[in-house]
Design a binder for these strands. Sequence first.
DNA 1: TTTGATTGTTAGTAACCTTTACTAACGAAC
DNA 2: GTTCGTTAGTAAAGGTTACTAACAATCAAA
Lengths: 392, 392
Amino acid sequence: MSPQGADLATQRGTARQQRFASVVRAGSRVTPERARSHNRVLVLQELYRSEGLSRADLARAVGLTRVTISDLVADLIEDGLVIELGLRSDARPGKPATLLDINRKGFAVIALDLSYDNLFRGVVTDLDGTVLHREHADVTGITGTDAVDAVAALLDRLVAAAKAPVLGVGVGSPGIVDDAGTVLSAPNLGWADVPLQAALAERSELPVLVANDANAAALAERTFGGAHEDAILVRVGRGVGAGLIVGGRLVRGAHSAAGELGHVVVGTDGGDICACGKTGCLETWLAIPRLQARLEAAADADTRRAALAAAGERLGISLAPVVGALNLGEVVLSGPLDLLDGSLLESAAETIRSRTMADSHGGPAVRMTTLGRDIVVLGAAVMVLTGQLGVF
Amino acid sequence: MSPQGADLATQRGTARQQRFASVVRAGSRVTPERARSHNRVLVLQELYRSEGLSRADLARAVGLTRVTISDLVADLIEDGLVIELGLRSDARPGKPATLLDINRKGFAVIALDLSYDNLFRGVVTDLDGTVLHREHADVTGITGTDAVDAVAALLDRLVAAAKAPVLGVGVGSPGIVDDAGTVLSAPNLGWADVPLQAALAERSELPVLVANDANAAALAERTFGGAHEDAILVRVGRGVGAGLIVGGRLVRGAHSAAGELGHVVVGTDGGDICACGKTGCLETWLAIPRLQARLEAAADADTRRAALAAAGERLGISLAPVVGALNLGEVVLSGPLDLLDGSLLESAAETIRSRTMADSHGGPAVRMTTLGRDIVVLGAAVMVLTGQLGVF
DNA sequence: TTTGATTGTTAGTAACCTTTACTAACGAAC
DNA sequence: GTTCGTTAGTAAAGGTTACTAACAATCAAA
């Protein structure tokens, strides 16, 4: 247990939520208070991206005057969000600057990944997304409300392990998740219309944000993986899912189901029958269990490589219209490296290039994620940072 | 000629441009001035959408107080943007309300469509998008700078025909157009890196906005056609282009080439050779010249219908991954009704449904546009309304 | 030592929205 | 006809916000 951390978090929770409600939304009125809140976020963003800025640096970067920045920074310091690092050591004329930084170790973020088979994983991170602590829970055979309870229990353990006030909780869940964090449908967990976000928020008394796992992964790739402003992240596992970033923003879709690529039919030459009833869905070509079965049936290395290349080609065929229509700059894959990173990836890249307009830029970059297995929890952490601090 | 209109337009042009620079962009500081400008836009938006609102109605809708709304409205009336309609006639207690409206007939918008074969078309509209005047110019065989001159000449005639101050000029051009309104590539007009927006702005001394024709059409469909917040508009003509609306916003793409669907390869069973060098591009299946050739070669009505259905199926095949990935709510087609509206449309709809996940909503609506041939100029007008007034 | 540059703060001002209070105008009830 | 309650719009005062102007502190370079 870490009473001081948890206490501080709940104690200051409500006040913080109000103050952090941020980012001037278009379509909404702007009162002076909102304007200031927006400017606060700008300062935080600047500090988040490049640590060791002075007030004068911030003024230049944000476009406000030094006076105003000083005022805002004083607020942020009082709230514990920003700290002074000391004087700049550079040798240059003028009064030495006082360097500032976000209080990166002063708050914790809790992030959960419910997308593994029979396993829930959770982490505690600092504001940089550095993982400080890990927990996991075996949930073999656990579904429905029991699974919700398991999430809550895992969350309790993480809250107890947090050594700093918890800024919020982010959850990457399989299935279709709406804006309010309700899991509309997650067959593997036996969930339908489960208001996970509301349930966890009530039990933990913390700000909670729930989103689809592939969408969270896309956010992580955009924030920590350096992904392009227009990119798609494809997650290959038991199923196939994707998250799309368009114009730097996550796409939600008409019915919160953006990225559901697994059951789109690929090609015009048949294929295997899918669990969904259709024939030739992307999952029948690409899902890991099917892929492994094909590899085991393969006689030699060449045959195995051909099987991987075929899967990559199918991925490319289904992505090409998306890449073309959205003019995506990057395609990122996440999943088992031993299967994806190699002829599968190369085949997908080549297929995309050959089936879209070879524009002057040579088509999108196609690569593996560098974030590894933590991609979903990192994305969940990004959700918290964005929602609570307005950062990114 | 209409000297008073043109004079007023140029005379008040610069002042208006400053005042209308609007819509608080995320990532930019908010000074009190910007905040007020944003609130002005909110008032205009409300008034634009539902005419006949009182100041008190606006206060309730926008969330500002009656006092502030009165102040903002006074500004807008002084600028000539808003007018009082008179007292509300409803019988209800209390002081009767003074109804307001945007000065819909007080300003003109000029919109051009350069996407026809050998023809430039232009219109003058009021703020509602009602077409008040039409002009066109034959440009058979005219390309390059001559074509730019032709656009400028057509624009001059439209400016002369405008009977009210011109708010701005919108242009829907074929090809790839970047954020600055430079036509990066438009083979049919012989344009490459032509700064059309800057050139027209300089010559006309009016605010000019240039965008791709299909993208403009998508904006028109979203604004005047009631299209869904997540929709794609596909324009079928000599080529095939598209405009995407995601989360209510137009998608530009990594290299300003979003919507370039024509040269995406469809299916895995070959096809005709395309002008671009690839085989089986969507254009080889769907472009009007190819389609007409196939229809003329057809022996009977059944064969013709089958040819149209085949084209629709190809369209569906290429759209299915896009619809699935973005979870689009609507697919709208624009082009010759006699060819598109019928078995082609039905076949496309059925193909999309059968190849994407049949979610609980039954897949996207698939329909023809109701805006007809004016769809591009209407979209160009929307660009002006958005850019100059912040409306929509 | 002087000069110039830079940082951060203090004091005063202008712009913005809000609260509070008011008048005008109307329907409904007695 | 009078009174009451409601709605619309305006006026004055107040608080918040960010700006300009001015200044002290600090340091490098001439």
